[in-house]
Amino acid sequence: MAHRRPEWLWHVALILALVAWWNVYRVLQPFSDFLVGLLPVDPASHTGEALAFFFYDVPKVFMLLVLVVFGMGVVRSFFSPERTRALLAGRALGIGNVLAACLGVLTPFCSCSAVPLFIGFVSAGVPLGVTFSFLIAAPMVNEVALILLFGLVGWPVALAYLGFGLAIAVAAGLVIGRLHLEGWLQDWVREITMDAGAGALDEERPAMHERYLAALAGVKEIVGKIWLYILLGIGLGALIHGYVPETLMATIMGADAWWSVPAAVLIGIPMYSNAAGVIPIVEALIGKGAALGTVLAFMMSVIALSLPEMIILRQVLTLRLIAVFIAVVGSGILMVGFMFNLMF
């Protein structure tokens, strides 16, 4: 019989791996700039900006995916899907959705970075409506967006944005949850959810190293299924980030007409950026005379309904569920845009 490694060695290995992960993650931006500097392109050009975006976001999203899926795999080994469902959704008046939305506020991720957490929650058996509340709130309402908005337009607008953003995340999650669309998840996600709960009640409690190994197996399976879609989504986002002209959008959204808000949402959906990336565009649009509600509707659609995000989610959700998600969140964003235009 082979000598089994002591349990503490597994914990030390995990700590060392986390330290290495953090040290790699914190140098992604300068490493991306370094890679662009090696190429025969001007870093300030459209091509240079697109390449820098791609070189930074690819490892960032994959590192977040690995970390979150591994962490959720370990957590799943302690809590069955039924227990998790009870913790997050088995409360009156959608408390689970409120908790998920508030968690999203505390995690300043762009939409594609929030997808790994969404996948981890769904595969752990967290109710679909609750996961959508998180997916919407994480990129759209966070401290980065609020601080930048405060510096740009003041606290009244920033606080109003916070309130409306949380309301969209909670309401959309509640609507999607009430529709009971779990059957519209991709088959492999439903199988992971069922497998996760299959032995949770009957099997003996595993050792910690067994939990780690099971979580690593989950990382391999999930990343193996969606890595190509992640690359395609970030590639498209990089092209849009580098080449979409701001002047064109300012021209369209500068008109004070009823159609400006829907037009801003339609323009924003194909784009991809986080709050920090879209705020300079918001500032430019406001400076060119665009209505505040129209600009904020554009901002919300960019960071909550981006096309690259939908491409990545396609591996998790069916087209029908993606369409419901876009319709529900898009309707909330339209209402916010019209209300801001009336209020400010």
Rank of each mutant, 00 (worst) to 15 (best):
Lys60Ala: 08
Ser45Trp: 06
Val261Asn: 00
Phe78Leu: 14
Met339Ser: 13
Val336Glu: 07
Cys110Arg: 04
Tyr25Ser: 06
Met208Asp: 08
Arg190Leu: 06
Leu296Asn: 07
Ala137Ile: 09
Arg211Glu: 04
Asn142Leu: 04
Phe344Ile: 12
Val115Phe: 00
Val282Ser: 06
Gln315Tyr: 10
Val130Asn: 02
Tyr212Met: 06
Ala200His: 02
Val282Leu: 03
Ile267Phe: 11
Val36Asp: 01
Pro116Arg: 04
Arg76Pro: 05
Ala327Lys: 01
His3Ser: 14
Glu143Leu: 14
Ser77His: 14
Gln315Trp: 15
Ala255Trp: 12
Val223Asn: 08
Val122Gly: 11
Pro270Trp: 07
Ile192Thr: 13
Gln315Gly: 15
Pro59Leu: 04
Ile322Phe: 03
Leu88Gln: 01
Ser80Asn: 01
Leu174His: 11
Ile269Ala: 05
Phe78Thr: 14
Leu51Ile: 05
Ala169Asn: 04
Ile147Gly: 12
Pro6Glu: 10
Phe31His: 13
Ser273Gln: 06
Ala284Arg: 13
Val265Thr: 04
Leu99Val: 14
Thr294Lys: 00
Phe53Trp: 09
Pro280Met: 00
Ser32Arg: 04
Glu283Cys: 10
Ala291Tyr: 08
Asn274Cys: 10
Gln186Pro: 03
Thr193Pro: 02
Phe298Glu: 00
Thr193Leu: 09
Glu7Cys: 14
Phe298Pro: 04
Ala169His: 05
Met339Arg: 11
Trp188Pro: 01
Arg76Ser: 15
Leu319Tyr: 07
Thr107Asp: 12
Tyr56Thr: 11
Leu162Gln: 03
Leu285Glu: 04
Pro6Met: 08
Gly277Ala: 06
Ile322Gly: 07
Phe62Met: 03
Leu135Pro: 07
Arg314His: 08
Glu182Leu: 05
Ala17Val: 11
Val105Ser: 05
Ser111Asn: 14
Arg5Gly: 13
Asn274Leu: 04
Thr84His: 09
Met299Val: 11
Phe298Asp: 00
Leu28Pro: 08
Leu159Ser: 10
His46Trp: 13
Val24Cys: 12
Trp184Glu: 15
Glu210Ser: 12
Val27Cys: 07
Ala214Asn: 10
Leu319Arg: 15
Arg205Lys: 13
Leu64Ile: 14
Gly73Pro: 07
Leu334Lys: 06
Ser113Val: 09
Ser331Pro: 10
Ile192Glu: 14
Val153Arg: 10
Leu51Pro: 03
Ala44Ser: 09
Ala214Tyr: 11
Leu128Gln: 08
Leu152Asn: 05
Trp188Tyr: 10
Leu317Val: 07
Leu149Phe: 08
Pro6Phe: 03
Ala217Trp: 12
Leu67Trp: 09
His46Arg: 15
Ala275Leu: 05
Val74Gln: 02
